[in-house]
Design a protein around this nucleic acid. Structure first.
Lengths: 219, 219, 219, 219
DNA sequence: AATGAATGAGTTTTCATTCAT
DNA sequence: TATGAATGAAAACTCATTCAT
């Protein structure tokens, strides 16, 4: 629990002072419970009753902490974003390949790892991806995207400097294409795996795509 | 209003005979109203009351036409798909460029036109893109996707035959990349335009992407 | 269809002139349909839509014939009573045993026959037996009861005259006991057969009861 | 309010913990209100709104106590049965006649007392007697009947031992006849009193019946 | 500060009845 | 006279939010 962030959230009226003063362990429980609940179903179908019971907290307390349901989601988003940023920061120091192509492959591999190892987080992200009826989801997705793009930009800029990557196209635009492809692959395999039980490996698709990305599709 | 489709929908129990016999103009009003309503908010938050009032029809009548809320969405999806198919069929006869690259640019231009000219339809499509809690949305998206991919596959296969496009990658995979990129562009500009009021032209982005797609990003 | 009765019902505002002028065959269809429908479920759960569809008549016509749902039930009751009276009248001429005890056994046998051969009528009667929330059911049951008691009174009075039956108790009171016992047997076997699938024969019970009735239970 | 029973009902999911914790006085009010409402009209025609209003409780609370309407009826039945059992238990210790015949007369007198003193309970029982569309009513009637028959069987068995009553007929069958006659008398006087305002004394009827029962109707 | 009972607005759905054609 | 489309009053049920203890 990033206490500084909580102070900020209190300033923004997303959590109350009562919540801030809570035992950090309890704050974390509340975060995880909300995250899990919202990752399981659409906002409207997640009831306060359910969250309160699951978190082992009374419904009344929940309202004293967050004021309303929307704020609970907002809180969950902000903590998620904070964790996500930390995750990618920790990735920066990781030993990486020498060549940009390897670094990018590394990058998408990390995304896959995240998905495989942090199932609840990933499910929450997907849910937000699909629920666009509230501005806060847009905000959430943009922030998540920015974290990813920042990371990618670094890789691409360096690739451009070493002439491994074309210099005539702005780095952000290349980053955009890369994340677009990775995200589409995720969505695709998500549908495929869940519905058709197709065992096609996501990494295979990504390799094919990488081929197109670097060498183009021109005959 | 495709009356044959309505007959099929009646057979499938999605609409009733009462609805079928309605004045075509009224049917269209109901379609447009439902389409608009569902494009504005998530399924759970669109109430029958609201649609009835907006369409200038009593709630009772609405139930007599569709039986329940889910069927109203089903109906909307099916009409949408039908219209969408007709739209792409009408595009096939359109004069197109000689080269595959131009044809693909044409394709994405058409997608843009659709979006610009049929704002409500587009918003509905986006909503369905995000609403993944019901099987019927999956079905809808698959059908829409198939229409698009069929169209694309024709272009790509021809491009492969004329050696304008690499032959070592399966056509569907290339089609996948193309639609992924176009869709991401849509999403992107959607967010940008709505929230940041950035006037960046979508076509510019697409041209850049096209460049990467054909020539690769290798330096 | 007893046309005189229909004229009476029209006078009482239970059916309309429109109904009276209907083809007798159609009137009968309507009676049978309503009888069947009301025998299948409780009044509130029988919808006009269902009856109209089953009878092959429009809902609008049904209202023009009867004005409202209650009247349809009233109509059904009255025709039922009329038929019931005819049924017992026809029984009077039937060859009967010489002794009163046999006559009474005959009587309860006839009740059993009615139940076995006219399943729908019997089911309707049972339904009315259980639905006592409207005055009209009371009225119906009283009329049915009176028909039965009249019949029984004749038997008993004769038995009293021939000294086969005690003369110190009013005939109606004896008739009351007999019908009470038969009805209870019906109820009992109704529950037993439907729920416990007990194959106990109703006639056996009745014979035991008859023994008690004639000889008393005194040791 | 038998608090142990309430705990059982909570275990069976018929009432919630919220209800259990309620002020006993309020629980009783709810029981009486529901009992009265269900005694006044058929299940389908008793609305939750009505009960809530009558009990001076909000609709929301009522749902929090019972979850649904069926459970409210179930609850009412169970409390009723409990009270009924207590009533008959308290009767056992009552001074009774020496002779079986007197004991049986005592028994039917007690039934009459119950009816006269607990009008609402009796009306509820009659309603359940007539409402046969739900399994729970069968269950209720069987339980009520069992309480009565247990009581009667004791009387009859003793009467058989002392040779006051015939031994060639099974005790249950005699009990069946007795309850059938008492119940019919109730029904009869119920109709008579309510509709025809006839002041005929029920006890007179019962005495006549008793005469027939013990001595038979044979002349 | 924590609790959870109380509330009532809102939702889907059913169906008798009306009425224009 | 027959029809069936239109209506709206109810009904069961859910759940975020308030508030007294």
């Amino acid at each position: 629990m990033n206490e500084n962030l909580i102070i900020e959230l209190e300033r923004d009226g997303i959590v109350t002072a009562t919540f801030r003063k809570l035992d950090p362990e309890k704050k974390k429980t509340l975060y995880v419970t909300a995250l899990t609940a919202f990752s399981e179903d659409v906002f409207d179908r997640v009831s306060f009753d359910y969250i309160a019971e699951t978190a082992g907290v009374s419904k009344g307390s929940l309202f004293q902490y967050f004021g309303n349901k929307e704020n609970l989601l907002r809180f969950t988003c902000e903590i998620f974003i904070d964790n996500y940023r930390q995750f990618w920061d920790s990735q920066r120091t990781r030993a990486e390949g020498i060549h940009t192509r390897e670094r990018i492959r590394d990058f998408s591999q990390t995304l896959l790892d995240f998905r495989a190892e942090r199932k609840v987080e990933y499910a929450f992200y997907v849910k937000m991806l699909y629920e666009n009826s509230r501005e806060l989801t847009d905000d959430f997705l943009q922030k998540i995207n920015r974290i990813l793009l920042e990371h990618l930009n670094r890789l691409i800029s360096r690739g451009a400097r070493t002439a491994e990557i074309r210099q005539d196209i702005p780095a952000e635009r290349i980053a955009f294409v890369i994340t677009a492809l990775i995200e589409a692959s995720h969505r695709y395999s998500n549908t495929i795996n869940q519905k058709l039980r197709n065992r096609e490996k996501l990494m295979d698709i990504i390799e094919d795509i990488e081929g197109m990305l670097f060498d183009g599709i021109k005959g």
